[in-house]
């Protein structure tokens, strides 16, 4: 069990970073896993090609909420291209079970254990997929439903 619930994950769950509303976001997206009830909203401010502010809200299991907290810590201050690369690296980690080695943010590696629990991968991936969706909206302040629930997506 300690493979899954590393102390750093519980720390992000209990004291989430960047869990706040964003005044006038450049773009945002809602994500949910209907089967388990995880829900995350991600809003970002993009200035030029850089993400200057990011905030999230939501409710759900410790994995989904800790992953959201870590994601925002990683993304804030990075370029949109770097954020997208982070999304890909995270998905890679969930698929292969080897640490992403995301530069400058070791906390995320604690989520590597999730790959051993297939039922929980969708929880960990939710915030990252939601971020990707927000960025795909091309800066327009729209909200689009995202799901990482395999029974509700075509993936």
């Amino acid at each position: 069990m300690e493979d899954l619930y590393r102390e750093i994950i519980l720390d992000h769950y209990r004291q989430p970073r960047n869990r706040h509303a964003i005044e006038s976001p450049s773009c945002s997206a809602d994500g949910s896993n209907p089967l388990c009830g995880d829900q995350v909203t991600v809003a970002v401010v993009v200035d030029g090609d850089r993400i200057t502010e990011i905030g999230f809200s939501g409710q759900g299991c410790s994995i989904s909420q800790a992953s959201a907290s870590m994601m925002t810590e990683y993304v804030r201050g990075r370029t949109v291209a770097e954020a997208r690369a982070g999304v890909d690296a995270f998905q890679q980690m969930m698929t292969t079970g080897t640490v992403a080695g995301l530069e400058g943010f070791d906390d995320i590696d604690a989520l590597v254990g999730v790959a051993k629990f297939p039922a929980r991968v969708k929880c960990a991936s939710l915030a990252w997929k939601t971020l990707e969706q927000a960025l795909n909206e091309g800066g327009a302040p729209v909200t689009t439903p995202v799901t990482t629930d395999e029974r509700n997506s075509n993936g």
């Binding site: 069990m1 388990c36 299991c61 410790s62 994995i63 929980r120």
Partner: peptide
């Protein structure tokens, strides 16, 4: 304070 998913996971252990 604990999401049902987390309850189920810990109980499984």
């Amino acid at each position: 304070g604990v999401h049902p998913h987390d309850i189920g996971q810990v109980l499984d252990t």
